[in-house]
Amino acid sequence: MTAPLIRIDAVERIFGGGRTLFGRMKPGVHAVQNVSLDIYPGETLGIVGESGCGKSTLARILIGLDAPTGGTVRFKGEDIAAITRKDFNRVARRIQYVFQDPVSSLNPRKTVRAILEAPLKRLRGLGRREREARLNELLDAVNLRTEFLERYPHEFSGGQAQRIAIARALAAGPDLIVLDEPVSALDVSVQAQVLNLLEDLKGRFGLTYVFISHDLSVVESVSDRVAVMYFGRIAEIGPSRSIFADPHHHYTRLLLDTAPAPGRPLHAPGTEGDLPDPYDPPKGCAFAARCPAADELCRSERPGLDAAVANEGHSAACFHPPGKAAAGRHSRNEKT
């Protein structure tokens, strides 16, 4: 296998914590815990999970906007946290980010030209003439007309604004773009336009994507590999096809079963329940309280990501992975 572009090694991020003035421990929340994964050049890695599972925190760590409290993220062998301390822009030239809400990610008082020129000037150091040429290329790449350059963000629809945000990320000439729920704020008809555009850009510019979403069907349609996160940890990781056809974690199974799809009857989870209290995390598997297969082992001991290995590169943190029998229910995928 080729060398990974990014190697995330045992990353942990605790918010709060530390001690008070009088030495008492302050409560801390583990937003991300012991996450290890590799991102290979040219792939799209999907990260799925529900709100509060730590996927956005992980994304911010990837681009250096946040630093891990433990573990390292290496880009081509170099520690990102160490680089950003010295020179933030070195990371920004290689890794870019697209935000969920296009409207709030564009400064309302800046024209599109000013927004797109910033990375060309600050990161690429281009002169006036070269910038003008690049601006036209960028707008062309995201299918926007050049007269939009002098307009302000509020004059654009959500889909157009998101394309401007994508053009800004491309302007830095990155290897990797982290897409944090890039289509969740968009209408469905526009969603498809943006997803298709992302697919085209990836081939054209040789990009690698980290695609974060709560929407399984979107992640399935764009990803080569998928990591499912639950309560700050990776519950399951593997090739997209393998995960969606044969999930080895009960949480992935639950997500697949409850995702609404046209022409499919409603499937409600048998056990109800909420996420565990982040200030008082359970000792064993975080999903045990909602899991139909949980037993004493699950509640007392935390399964590692190697607890269930389905095949090459597909593994799940589950002591009792749902078997093929259970997966049979999933054959609807072929039927529909």
Binding site: A192, S217, T336
Partner: peptide, 15 residues
Amino acid sequence: CVPVLGKPDRRLDAI
């Protein structure tokens, strides 16, 4: 234009 679970290879038909 909406991706459907279980059919990842369909090119989305954007409006």
